[in-house]
Structure formats: structure tokens, C-alpha cells
């Protein structure tokens, strides 16, 4: 069932009509339409929860953050500007930012750094392994595979580990400038592989 739900959420499906549909649902939600918002929740919750869970890790806290994200989307729905990106990208951006706020606000962030330092080798294949094998997921996995190990490691530690690039530099014991370059080069390659979403 996990695969089915995930497939429903895959970006390929939301590229065309469904993308607009999410934007329309969000606009209707912005006028106080709770039914449209419930539909929007169904469309976006797996993606939002996936990214939050990946960053926060603790399932109970991840649920709290996912709830915060949707309440935030509801609160801000009237300010959604479709010309600046899709509703799905907006939701992903809010979700990641909220998850990051949660992990950085904890004094646990030091513990997180230590834990990740211990697992940094094991860590960087985990994300690739977790990408399940629907067509779209295969595409993302292939794109991640196009990054050099060093690039992928830096991008994943930043995005899913929730670390700043300076923290990533400490974790990997390399210069900050080196990490900045790996992150930038990695993201450019990922963008070239996956393209935009429109």
C-alpha cells in the first residue's frame, strides 16, 4: 500500500492537470473552503509527511510538524502566488522549513550532529535505498545516482540531515567552501537530470 500511495503522489502525475488542480484547491482554500482544503490534504499529505519524517525522524514529532505545516498552508492559502511556483513546491518548501525549524530549535541538534557523524558512511546510501521502484521513483533514483558520491552525500546531509553547510563541513571534515561547491554542483546536476516541474 505504501507503494500505491507513493505512486499516486509521484511528480509525473502532478505535472499537468493535477498540478493546476492543487493550485486551484489551494486558492479555494484561501477563501475559507475547508472541503477543498481536505482534498488538498489528500493530495499533498504523503509528500509533506515524507519529507518531514526524513528530517525529523521521530514519528510522533513528525506528525506534529506535518500538522503544523498544513495549518500553516491553510493560514497562508490566500497568499499563494501560482506565478512563483506550484502549490506542491510551496508545500514542500514550507514542510522542509518547518522540519528544519523543529530540529534546529532542539538542543538535540548537537546530538544529531554526533549521531550523524557516527553514521555518515552508512547514511548516504540510505536515501537512495528508500526510494521505491515506481517509474517516477526510479527516475529520481537515477538522477541521484548521477551525482558523485561526494555531491550526493553533501546534498543529503543538508536536505535530509537538516544540517547547515557549515555543519556538513564539520561532519565531513572538509573546508566549508568545498561543501558549498559540492552542494551547488550537486543541485545543478540534479536539476539538469530531473528538469523543472512545469
Amino acid at each position: 500500500m505504501g507503494v500505491l500511495r507513493a505512486m499516486r503522489a509521484r511528480p509525473h502525475d502532478v505535472d499537468g492537470d493535477e498540478l493546476d488542480a492543487a493550485g486551484n484547491l489551494l486558492r479555494r482554500a484561501g477563501r475559507g473552503d475547508q472541503v477543498s482544503f481536505a482534498e488538498l490534504y489528500d493530495q499533498l499529505a504523503p509528500m509533506v509527511h515524507g519529507v518531514v519524517l526524513k528530517v525529523v525522524r521521530d514519528p510522533a514529532q513528525a506528525e506534529e510538524v506535518t500538522q503544523e505545516v498544513f495549518v500553516e498552508l491553510w493560514r497562508l492559502a490566500a497568499r499563494f502566488d501560482g506565478t512563483k511556483g506550484s502549490a506542491r513546491t510551496w508545500a514542500a518548501t514550507v514542510a522542509h522549513r518547518r522540519a528544519i525549524d523543529r530540529v534546529r530549535s532542539e538542543q538535540a541538534s548537537r546530538d544529531r550532529l554526533q549521531r550523524d557523524a557516527a553514521h555518515v558512511v552508512r547514511e548516504h546510501d540510505t536515501v537512495v535505498a528508500e526510494v521505491e521502484s515506481s517509474l517516477e521513483q526510479a527516475r529520481v533514483r537515477k538522477a541521484l545516482g548521477q551525482l558523485s558520491d561526494l555531491q550526493r552525500e553533501a546534498v543529503e546531509l543538508a536536505y535530509f540531515g537538516g544540517h547547515t553547510y557549515r555543519e556538513v563541513a564539520v561532519l565531513l571534515d572538509v573546508a566549508e567552501g568545498t561543501v558549498k561547491s559540492r552542494i551547488r554542483d550537486g543541485m545543478i546536476r540534479l536539476r539538469d537530470e530531473l528538469g523543472g516541474e512545469s
Partner: peptide
């Protein structure tokens, strides 16, 4: 951000039904 949204979408995990 759009690229990262695709990566995130590929890692979707449905939250518990009760959350809705």
C-alpha cells in the same frame, strides 16, 4: 525547489489516517 519537490515526492510516506 522544484527539483527538491520531485525528490521529496518520490519519498512520500502517508501519515496516519487519524492525522487528517
Amino acid at each position: 525547489r522544484a527539483t527538491l519537490t520531485q525528490v521529496s515526492s518520490a519519498m512520500a510516506v502517508p501519515p496516519p489516517e487519524s492525522l487528517k
